[in-house]
């Protein structure tokens, strides 16, 4: 479904990504782990179109999207959330959800039904008329997550989706994610919450110093000495 080949990105003299290659299959839940500054978010920004890579190519469902702008990639079905929450704060929860659906020119009834169902899934229905800025951090993260789903995204990139969550909310998030995965959605998740990412992901990719260290079964990657070394220094 998604193929990344030899992705390289510099920021001044710093090489943030050094020839990263990665493939994601349909309906996978891929967890990406790595120490701070390893290039996880940069990889995500390059795939979703926030940055353009210096070298390398990205294919999505057979189409080369390397140079497509972020909004075109979104309309193709590549959704995302942000490490630092980026909600439309003065808009209501409901309006936040409608914005992406409007861009797909969905019929009104269809988008309202979809928004209502997603709110139900993350248990935020009672807050639909509240301004996004009035929600707790955890609720805002859930909202940002389901907002990305309103794009009918085939693949969704989640950047530290459980940061700031109350423990009860983590389960709501995991249940929702797994339900959406059962319905055919693909996820790539950057996460520092190791127990959560181990529970959710079907495959784990470890990144360090802008390179892929290892990819495979979550338990084998997590216990790999090289990965442990990269994490602990």
């Amino acid at each position: 479904m998604l193929k990344v080949e030899g992705l390289t990105k510099h920021f001044g003299g710093t090489k943030a990504l050094n020839g990263v290659s990665l493939e994601v299959e349909k309906q996978e839940i891929v967890g990406i782990i790595g120490p701070n500054g390893s290039g996880k978010s940069t990889l995500l920004h390059n795939i979703t179109g926030l940055y353009l890579p210096d070298k390398g190519n990205i294919w999505f469902e057979g189409t080369d999207i390397t140079n497509l702008p972020i909004d075109k990639r979104a309309r193709l079905g590549i959704g995302r959330t942000f490490q630092n929450l980026r909600l439309f704060k003065l808009l209501t929860v409901w309006e936040n959800l409608l914005v992406p659906a409007i861009q797909l020119k969905k019929p009104k009834k269809e988008m309202e039904e979809q928004a209502a169902e997603l709110l139900e899934l993350v248990k935020l229905s009672h807050l639909k008329n509240e301004q996004a800025q009035n929600l707790s951090i955890g609720q805002q993260r859930l909202l940002e997550f389901i907002r990305a789903m309103m794009l009918d995204s085939k693949i969704v990139f989640l950047d530290e989706p459980t940061a700031g969550f109350h423990p009860n909310m983590i389960q709501t998030f995991i249940d929702t994610l797994q339900e959406l995965n059962r319905r055919g959605k693909t996820f790539v998740i950057i996460e520092h919450n190791i127990p959560a990412i181990m529970e959710i992901s079907t495959r784990l990719v470890a990144i360090a110093a802008g390179e892929v260290l290892m990819s495979g079964d979550p338990h084998s990657v997590h216990s790999n000495p090289e990965v442990v070394e990269a994490y602990l220094g």
Binding site: T48, L50, P69, I70, D71, A74, R75, G79, R80, F82, R86, L87, F88, K89, L90, L91, E95, N96, L98, V99, P100, I102, Q103, L104, R147, A148, M150, L151
Partner: peptide
């Protein structure tokens, strides 16, 4: 209108709006 809601989302956060498919 839908157009207005899209415009208001740009005011709130251009990058997030673009990531939601908005032609900013």
């Amino acid at each position: 209108s839908n157009f207005g809601l899209t415009v208001r989302s740009i005011r709130e956060d251009e990058t997030a709006a673009a990531a939601m498919g908005v032609k900013v």
